[in-house]
Amino acid sequence: MVERRLLVRWLRPYTGEPPPALDGSSRSDLLTRFAGIAVPHFVSAVMRLGGDAEPPQLPTAHNRKTVRVAGRQIVARDADVVALTLTDPAAAALPRWHPGAHVDVHLPSGRVRQYSLCGDPADEDEYRIAVRRVPHGGGGSIEAHHLTVGQLIEISAPRNGFMMPVPGSGSRAERLRFVAAGIGITPILPMIRQADRLGVPWSLRYAGRHRASLPFVDELTAFGDKVQIRTDDAAHGAPTAVDLLDGVDERTAVYVCGPPPLIEVVRAAVPADAELHIERFSPLPVVDAAPFEVELARTGEVVPVAGDASTLAALRAVRPNLAYSCQQGFCGTCVQRVLGGEVAHLDHTLTDRQRELGRMLVCVSRAKTAGARLILDL
């Protein structure tokens, strides 16, 4: 996501015209025009199904595209990150996309996972995604690692919640600073290519535990001293704000993607007047929230939700196959129907009307008061 002070400018129905510049001027962002199809897909994800329409549902066959796994490459030396090249089975051009975009990947098991496009947006013949194996995750990354060349899978069209305006085209910044850690490099890679192609001044601080764990190191070192790689083992500890934001001032736009601790270091130290754009690959931890209960209407089962757990986590403990994807209130996959109780809605996806109709994204939203009970038609 983009830091909220910038995101609020995008939360409006798509009218066919590019959104306003992120600095609040009336000029349209040049690269937003280049985004083409990516903009309506992003806005549809945010403002999906307004009015009296039903809320976001699981993607169905009519809005998916079949692609072929055309290539498979290990891109981190510890073999925990695999890059998959996806092409159209009929060799047709794929929908265009803008740096920062992602696709929903529908795995053979029925799991749906979101992966950033990390190839070149100028290449209309293929997409590239990269997946880090998470041994104790929900199983999606392990399944993705077992996809083979020639296998057919389904994906969504590209969507974008991490758009990149550039200096001179609606952004007041004069240069770009990219900050990434580990697999967080995937949405940043296309941004680097775009900035370099346009001659925009940029630099990257790339962090990780050790060099063998970092994907795409060989591609990045080709950019020379614009890229600085910092690993915990060589530097004797996690990166500080000085390591990540050296030389950053109010004329710098900062793009950061990585785990919550890295994001919080950057958020706390970035100059107040600088543009800050954020993409998260994992949900924020739940801290000191009010505990409550969820009743499953069809069985009468009551599920406690602790103050340090999400509603989704509590439900998955008793319903492991419950569908979810982003875990951040963006994609709409985990939407459920509320039959009773008051909800504290913490997402930015559902419309007011959808909330009135009793819809809830269980990955981020909770009961409004401590000790209350929500009744869900799970």
Rank of each mutant, 00 (worst) to 15 (best):
V2E: 14
L7V: 05
W10E: 13
R12N: 14
A21L: 00
L22I: 15
D29K: 01
A35L: 08
I37R: 12
P40T: 09
S44C: 04
V46N: 07
G50R: 06
A61G: 10
L94I: 11
P95M: 10
R96V: 09
A101I: 05
A101M: 04
Q114R: 13
Y115A: 07
E124M: 03
D125M: 15
R132N: 00
R133A: 12
G139T: 01
G140D: 04
H145Y: 02
L147E: 07
L147Y: 06
G150V: 00
Q151T: 02
L152Q: 08
G168W: 02
A181N: 02
Q194I: 04
R205W: 06
H210D: 15
D225E: 07
K226A: 02
V227Y: 05
V256M: 08
A268G: 09
A269K: 06
E279S: 06
L284T: 13
V286Y: 08
L296C: 12
R298E: 15
A306V: 10
N321K: 15
N321P: 11
Y324C: 08
Q328F: 01
T333Y: 10
E342D: 05
L346A: 14
L350W: 04
T351D: 11
L361N: 15
C363I: 08
S365M: 06
R373N: 03
L374F: 10
